[in-house]
Each structure stands twice: as C-alpha cells, then as structure tokens.
Amino acid sequence: MAIAKREFKSYVNSPIPYILVTAYIATAGYMFFQQLFIVRQADMRHFFDNMPLLFCLIVPFVTMRLVAEERREGTLELLLTMPVTDWQLVFGKFLAALGLMSLLLVLTLAFPITVAALGPLDKGTTVAGYIGAILMSGAFVAIGIMASSFTRNQIVAALVAFFIGFGLFLIGALIGVLPPSLAPVASALSIGSHFQNISRGVIDSRDFLYYVSIIFVCLLVAQTTLDSRRWR
C-alpha cells in the first residue's frame, strides 16, 4: 500500500500524467462533440467504441517508468531489500497506475453528464461501460507493468507494452476478415470485443474473467521477472 501511495504521489508530481490526461480528454472530447454536432447524436456509444484504441496508446506511457526507472536508478535494489514481497511491489504499482486511470475516467464523466442534459441517457449501459473501462484499463496497466519489468529503458517498456496491447486490439479488428472457424477464437482473445460486450450492458462472467486473468497473468510474469535475479 505504501508503494501504491508513493507511486501515485510521484504521478502527481510529474508532468506526464497531465499531458496524457489532457491529450485523452481532448481526443475523446473531439470525437464526442463531433458526433454531437455533426451527426446530432448524443450518446455514449461512440465514446466507448474509441476507448480500447485510445487506452492502448495512452496506458504504455503511464506504466513505462514504473519498474524500468527504478531498475535504472538502482532504487529497485533498495526496495527489494525491504520487507515487501515482489508481489506487493508489483501490485502496489498496479494500483497506483489503475488509480490514475480511474481519475482520468472520472474526468470523462463530463460526457455522460452532457448527454443526460441533452436527452435521455441510458444509465445502465453507461455504468456498465465504465465498469468495463476500469477492467480494460487494468488489463492494459498490467501489460504495461510487465513490459516495464523486462527492461531498464522506459522507451522500450512503452513500445513493448504498446505492441502487446495493440496486438490484442488488432485481433478484434480482424474478426471480420478471418474465416468463420477462427472468428470466435479471435473474439475471445480480443481486448476490444470483451469491452464491447460489457459496454453493451451485458456483464458476462467470461468478459470479467478475461480481464482479470490478463491482469493476473501479466502481474505474475512481472513478479517472476523481478524474482529471476534470485534464481539459482
């Protein structure tokens, strides 16, 4: 918990999250209001549809420094000689980054509020969409932490995280072109199609399990990477 607190504070003190949050709100806001004014349609679907790709771009920048920087600065060594387990360390960092993403999502509540002001808001799908958004952020964050644990170079960490995330996103985009026998597999692996399911208002245990298992597996890999220094 101390680690999560420290990481979160260090986000507050660093310029990166502000840039990212601004960039995200600006992009999502542009898309939202374009929809609103040009198509004259006020709903949240569009906002949620763009979310997987945008998160796939943003989250790597949030997570890239989490382990890589500590490795480069040598503070990782000090931290790993304190009475915290590798899992607590990884999970603390996960919570901090997820906290930042939640904060970002809170800021986007401006969009549903706008929609509600202009007409009927489908509360059910909006709430479901936000739940899905948190789960999906968690998955991207976990991927990012895993990537960050592999290297001492933040750029490498960001790129690796991006490619893994983008790969999982792309699988979903390919569903239409794939032969029908492979389509279900692709949709099962896709980070986007699970999100779509949830944001449609159907919270299925399969979708929930998908994100939770991505989070768990990635954090486990990150923990194992940290622990690998002690293999003999």
């Binding site: 918990m1 101390a2 680690i3 504070k9 000090l78 931290l79 009475p83």
Partner: peptide, 21 residues
C-alpha cells in the same frame, strides 16, 4: 551509489521508508 527517489523530499522519503518498513 546511494539510490534514492530524486522526486521526493527528504521527509517524504523517510516517511515512505517508515511505511514500507
């Protein structure tokens, strides 16, 4: 080489260590 978190103040850092420890 004394690795420390450069973006924290001395007091913040020592309090963090107290938390972790």
């Amino acid at each position: 080489d004394t690795p420390l978190y450069k973006d924290m103040t001395v007091l913040e850092y020592l309090e963090f260590i107290c938390d972790v420890r």
